[in-house]
Design a protein around this nucleic acid. Structure first.
Lengths: 255, 255
DNA sequence: AGGACTATATTGTCCGACAATCGGACTATC
DNA sequence: GATAGTCCGATTGTCGGACAATATAGTCCT
């Protein structure tokens, strides 16, 4: 007899039946990582050792490891063999968020609204904090946008621009928020640039103004320029005849 | 000789050569899900069938499944045996984002800046779109904040308030962005309310104004009230003597 | 038809095995 | 001495088979 009968209407205590061994193992390791007992960079014991310590079969350990791997808590560097504890990279988390949103049939307008909220503040923060070196990197990206031949490449650099900006803002939360949004936005952005001839020029002008505001440490200007920039995007989409409630597709989740 | 020599500073062309069979399998299934060939609710073939179809061992399939499971793309309902395709819930994704941020030692100020960016826009959108029924729910939460005895409960309802607001905004991207931020903010918010006597009153006043603005469909007012509200939070923290660069801890990641 | 009972299918785990290959140690060569 | 080549053990990825537990489906009884 296991403890059945949580017959109370407590919907949060139901499904705590027996969890599989592999699940418990991944939980234990996960806790160790979250509690900092295992820290990023540390190498995990070998599968055989883990199997011995947990007194289970190696296959069971392996399933637990796959789960942690997918969660981004452990992983390999390069072609290494041993697994290491990793800090779940923003890239990975971002791609997960992107996946969730894509499966939710999020529409373009929702993404745009998110950009509308976040990007201006990011620009303002970047203007407050950006250093000279950062600025140089940003400018490099702007020229890359300018010289890029195909729309394809230009879009890549536009995404980079926002990414770099988020980095400059020094705010990892906003950084993490913006990443998946830009990723999902990218494909339709590409279409937009393809169809609207003056699109690239307008983007370039806006980027230059923003960079200028950042250089002179004028947060307000950076913010208002970015606001206009984002609004320009929307106009571009309308000009390109892209419906605002278009569902975003699944980008290449290459991780 | 494989292509070694990534001696160039091109960190994007890593030798992502051969991936393990289990990895490829999980990727293939993931694609099928993202492409909607497999849709949420569908049951996956049994492990044995998958093993046959992919012409690999069942253990290999299992590792792939554990990975997908951890990604929230497949899972079980209740004590079921078969795996089903699932839509990765926002809650789960949000808690994962929270974990990433917590492990990153994100500071309070970063979270606050995110709120500063997102919340006002969310309020504005809610004012544009909120229906009567939604409004009633929102008001219920506000009174819950008012009548809650302990700071504990009040904070819970404050978090709910923002959650509901995000829901009203009709924007799932912003909703997903705000959720983990509020979750991470909650513990310190609780301390703040404990230490600053007038904290709760100010929160209540702001909430009422925001609700009012939403009822009358005045986005601009809702936005500016929310801006003030968020700024009030920060002042509260300063009054409470909480350093702005305090790292947020790992909350209860109960999933 | 509904409920109890049985059989089957499916999962979770275990065992033992093997090829591939990564990490080093060790050696030969310049 | 530094570099290149070779060898060996350790470790991973995969395999095939096995078994207990149990969810699911089918069967029987009333």
């Amino acid at each position: 007899m296991t403890e059945t009968a949580p017959s109370y209407k407590d919907p949060l205590f139901e499904p705590l039946t027996r969890q599989s061994a592999s699940h418990r193992i991944s939980t234990v390791i996960e806790q160790k990582i979250l509690r900092r007992s295992l820290r990023p960079g540390d190498a995990l014991p070998t599968e055989t050792e883990l199997a011995e310590q947990f007194a289970v079969n190696r296959s069971t350990v392996r399933e637990a490891l796959r789960r942690l791997e997918s969660a981004g808590l452990v992983g390999r560097e390069g072609g290494a063999k041993r697994l290491k504890v990793m800090r779940p990279g923003h890239a990975e988390t971002a791609s997960r968020v992107g996946r969730t949103l894509a499966l939710d049939d999020v529409t373009f307008i929702e993404l745009w609204e998110a950009m509308r909220a976040v990007a201006p503040r990011v620009a303002a923060l970047a203007a407050e904090r950006g250093s000279a070196a950062d600025l140089a990197a940003l400018e490099a990206i702007v020229s890359a946008v300018e010289t890029a031949r195909a729309a394809e490449g230009a879009v890549t650099h536009v995404v980079e621009f926002f990414g770099k900006l988020a980095e400059l803002s020094g705010n990892r939360v906003l950084q993490l928020a913006m990443q998946p949004v830009m990723r999902l936005l990218a494909p339709s952005l590409r279409r937009m640039i393809d169809r609207v001839p003056q699109g690239r020029t307008r983007i370039l002008v806006a980027q230059r103004c923003i960079v200028e505001a950042i250089r002179e440490h004028k947060p307000d200007e950076a913010e208002s320029w970015m606001t206009r920039h984002v609004q320009d995007f929307r106009r571009g989409y309308e000009l390109a005849g892209i419906a605002l409630d278009t569902r975003v597709g699944i980008g290449t989740m290459a991780d």
